[in-house]
């Protein structure tokens, strides 16, 4: 057990070092949320004036939306990295060492979690600098960040599974571009649920992106509804566990195809 934990740490460290040594990648993953934040922030500034929107400033409303959207969009590319490791022979090299298979998979999850966490905190801080108000305090923000990490795990694991199964960049690119915007807009990321068409609101109930938003927003409000936080958060955790389980399974099917 302690070996697995040690090995998970070695492999996580390797991935984090790789990210830090590619500054272009870092800058892009941080600049993109900034663009969302200030573009959407300016464009939709006045939607809060719509009757029934229910938020003081649009920036307050937007920050969790951008945090969650960024968690989805950065994690859904995880499969590209896995694919690259397969093509380069790195994965096979590790598979011929005694490293625990769980450590290989866990390292992906831990690395993605750390990256998503940092990205989320940066967005929250940028929002604060821009004048956003967080009435739920640190506890609320923490829940938002946790929800975005768990949501990121879901998409990261699916993306890894996809990368190992189809072994084609085009498929990952295609599915990601197809999914990102519908999943974001079929949620309360940018628009208050009360103002969404009713069919969209019903679809959103089944959208994990929306679960993260409901849990995060509720925790960040002045008067959190902990029932909402727990139910959505619990559903997200269950889904993440299922996704990681699935990607571990496809890992085995990869080994059969070697």
């Amino acid at each position: 057990m302690s070996t697995t934990i040690n090995q998970t740490w070695f492999m996580t460290q390797r991935q984090l070092t790789a990210i830090l040594r590619q500054p272009a990648y870092l800058v892009i993953t941080l600049i993109q949320p900034v663009i969302w934040l200030f573009l959407f922030g300016s464009l939709f500034r006045r939607v809060v004036e719509l009757p029934g929107f229910g938020a003081g400033s649009y920036l307050d409303y937007l920050v969790p939306g951008v945090v969650v959207m960024s968690a989805v969009s950065s994690n859904m590319w995880a499969g590209m990295g896995t694919l690259e490791e397969i093509e380069r022979g790195t994965l096979n090299r590790f598979l011929t060492t005694p490293v625990s298979r769980a450590a290989l998979m866990n390292a992906n999850v831990v690395q993605q979690g750390i990256s998503t966490g940092i990205q989320s905190v940066v967005i929250v801080l940028l929002g604060k600098i821009g004048g956003a108000d967080y009435p739920g305090g640190v506890a609320g923000l923490l829940i938002l960040v946790l929800a975005s990490i768990v949501l990121g795990t879901v998409f990261g694991a699916f993306s890894n599974a996809l990368g190992m199964l189809v072994r084609q960049r085009e498929s990952i690119i295609g599915i990601n571009t197809f999914l990102l915007l519908p999943l974001t807009f079929l949620s309360s990321a940018f628009m208050a649920p009360g103002l969404m068409p009713s069919w969209m609101r019903h679809v959103a109930d089944f959208n994990p992106v929306n679960w993260a938003l409901v849990a995060g927003r509720s925790a960040m409000s002045a008067d959190p509804d902990w029932g909402d936080v727990l139910s959505r958060g619990g559903a997200l955790l269950a889904l993440a566990a299922a996704a990681v389980w699935l990607s571990t399974r496809t890992f085995r099917s990869y080994q059969k195809s070697v």
Partner: peptide
């Protein structure tokens, strides 16, 4: 030592 290198290029 496999056919494809497998070394981590960034490390």
């Amino acid at each position: 030592v496999a056919q494809r290198s497998g070394a981590d290029p960034v490390a």
